[in-house]
Design a protein around this nucleic acid. Structure first.
Lengths: 109, 109
DNA sequence: AATATTAATCGTAATATTGCAATGAACAAA
DNA sequence: TTTGTTCATTGCAATATTACGATTAATATT
């Protein structure tokens, strides 16, 4: 079907999956790393930096903004995108709680 | 196109995206959480636990195994799946390096 | 051997994602 | 006002993902 049956999972599981899906494409990873590095950015820089077409970058930015991981402020003709630090911290807590589960040595394998 | 242009990104960016994609579906999140909880498992338990059909669970398990995040050992008619602790630790390092980038307050937004 | 159990695989349908050309909207500069 | 710049949106085409019924493969059980 191609459609995740979200209703059968917990809110926490769906939230982890949503954040993870945002990082599930190397272009979005590259965009976020670049935003971290230069600490202030516009879309045009990213088009040059990443190497995908402008509409493609714009679409990835839209997804990241929709999730709240980045902010976008209009500045004249350009738009300034940057990391949404508060939401990034919240996301980190959610992901850490999942990744840092106790690693007891399994009893069977 | 629906095809990620992996060749234009770094190995690190592609690796982060691959791991993240594995967590990008709540069923796989639920499977991993269950494996962490009971510390030894067979597929049949997961079918009851998660609520998706057996072929669907089997497919998700195959992806997680292919990525190396879980191990599967045949035990008679059933298969024992559990977390691959070594690879899980490696994955954690990769994801932490990405998630824990310095959060300098942006200069523009 | 015949039957049951367990999980993988195959085939297929439905939906989602990715990418970009073309276009549009908003503003700045001439 | 015309032109240029920057980024969003639209409308596709190509590919990927998710889900499951049907089947198969492998092993137990009787």
């Amino acid at each position: 079907m191609g459609l995740a049956k979200t209703e059968m999972f917990t809110d926490q599981q769906n939230e982890i999956a949503l954040f993870a899906k945002a990082f599930g494409h190397p272009a979005r990873v590259a965009i976020l790393q670049h935003l971290f590095k230069i600490n202030t950015c516009v879309c045009g820089d990213l088009v040059n930096e990443i190497g995908l077409a402008q509409p493609t970058i714009s679409q990835h930015l839209k997804e990241l903004k929709h999730l709240g991981l980045i902010k976008g402020n209009v500045e004249g003709t350009s738009v300034c995108y940057c990391i949404n630090t508060e939401n990034w911290s919240t996301m980190k807590q959610v992901m850490h709680a999942f990744l840092d589960q106790d690693l007891n040595t399994p009893t069977c394998c």
